[in-house]
Design a protein around this nucleic acid. Sequence first.
DNA 1: AAAATAATTGTAAGCGCTTACATTAGCGAT
DNA 2: ATCGCTAATGTAAGCGCTTACAATTATTTT
Lengths: 333, 333
Amino acid sequence: MNIYDVSRKAGVSIATVSRVLNGSPNVSDRTRNLVLEVMNDLGYTPNVFARGLGLGTIYTIGIMCSDSSDPYLAHAISYLERGLRTHGYDSILCCTGNSLETRQKYFNLLRSKKVDAIILAGSKLIEMNPMDNQYLIDASRELPIMLVNGYLKGENIYSTVCDDRHATHEAASRLISSGCRDILYLYTSYSYSGVNKMNGYQDALAGCGLPVREKYIRQCPKDVTSARDLLLRLDHSGLSFDAVLASDDALAVGAVKYANMTGREIPDSLSIIGYNNSSYALCTDPELTSIDSKIETLCNTTINTLMGVFHGSNVPTRTTIAADLIIRATTKF
Amino acid sequence: MNIYDVSRKAGVSIATVSRVLNGSPNVSDRTRNLVLEVMNDLGYTPNVFARGLGLGTIYTIGIMCSDSSDPYLAHAISYLERGLRTHGYDSILCCTGNSLETRQKYFNLLRSKKVDAIILAGSKLIEMNPMDNQYLIDASRELPIMLVNGYLKGENIYSTVCDDRHATHEAASRLISSGCRDILYLYTSYSYSGVNKMNGYQDALAGCGLPVREKYIRQCPKDVTSARDLLLRLDHSGLSFDAVLASDDALAVGAVKYANMTGREIPDSLSIIGYNNSSYALCTDPELTSIDSKIETLCNTTINTLMGVFHGSNVPTRTTIAADLIIRATTKF
DNA sequence: AAAATAATTGTAAGCGCTTACATTAGCGAT
DNA sequence: ATCGCTAATGTAAGCGCTTACAATTATTTT
């Protein structure tokens, strides 16, 4: 079952069938309808490989992320996949874990698949050492590289980022205005957004004339139990803190659990702010105040930008989206 | 840059290059190494389209799910993608939402991409009305259909399921032995696994000589707040219950929140069991007793079965995996 | 009505690869 | 050295589609 079968049954040449397939205007309506009807009767679907061979593209976008089971990334993938599909694009997903090496390997694999673009979801995929991103810059001569919540300077590289710095700045400032003085900052990794978030926190302290203390900036694996245990240890070690600002809701949930275990009152004795406004935020009692990083907007903007690139429009290299502070019950404001 | 460039530089025919590409044994070691070296020098990667045209396959598996942002499915996708990749297969992801129509559309889209198999992740993708699954049965003549946690009878259809019925049977039985008499069952949708879970619950009641009451079987959207509110309403309406068995952890979290709001003691006044043993289970205080549906095992088994099918091995049509009851703090045992 | 032009359709040459079949080279047995 | 056989390599015909260009038909224009 191929284009020849259709052309035979419709009594036209394969070129005409192909034109119908590709929406060429140079086909009379009568012929077009005839061909479409035959296609329908035969249940014909064009062979993607043959199509790709001729067209050199296959309407497929590669999506890379470190781990699709992370709730934040899972949502990103969901929005990206859905959005791309509405534009007629498929997506090939690649979860690369955290090793740079496998990341490069999968990246090249996607390229060899002749995807039309590659979207990197999540700021962890951009290395802090510029040298390690060279492979992206090299590849960008060949196809557009889209970064969701990550930034890299380059000719054919487009970033859509959330204004994390501003968001944590605001969050920390509000904690301070509500009376908190010893704000613990919990983060999981240094990354584009990780660094921005931390800077926002530090700026806020500095802006209010409070000291930025190393002891109050703590690294922690991104899971509830690790965060809870870390806080228990810190508490035990005599560090006193009256607020926790976390780079992810999972860490903030851990903070709630720490408070519940130690009997500290939330928010009177301890204020907590999470990040991402994920479903975690509604799991706890009291429910989490959290920064909404607007993942859906981020993804949609990325896709719109990409479509702009495909159509040759003039498109911004970096788009910044504002975050929202969603106030619930773990803060005094 | 194509196979001709390689063949020219290596001084062999394109057929030989192709043989090296496909790991044919009919190439002398000397020639193979020479060709590989040239490929490496040139940074050559074969064109997937041309390859697919010739081979008729492209080492790509279609994965369908209703919504990749659901934590359970997100994990499934993560495991599937990773597992397939270790076997040299890519995956194309399709999130179909809940409409049968778009599901069929995307299914055919995957077929037109000539994927080597389609994996349906999650029991929601199988319709309860057999007629509505005909498209799967039709397609199975063309390519293997793999169901993760769903069952459909058919020639080239393979299912890997969790023994949900047994799991909820055990869970309910243990609730009963621990003194519970009025066990509320919360579910989200009728589906292969949904029905099994419910049956397990009902069997357990019947087995212990307890009545199966309609009022104690409630449908609820799969989110924390809906579940909490439903329980508040039921409570308010005068229904008395001393345990909640939920078809998903999110619902169980809602139950914990209901208890916290109303001051009911967990587990003394209310026992709660969730399903899937997801990260939700560790978010609450007290932490959730939950049924681990072994999603990782399910996914790996599915992939192994699929590889068996590809190799023409004799492979079981349905594989059942036992669930685990993970006991934490929301039950009295 | 013929000529000029535009719209539609057809022909055929790829796209880069695989593979059946043909050819050649290699090697031990005679 | 010759034959027979196997292993290695090459030749060429697709795979199903796109598209430049050629050919035909329809529509204006004069």
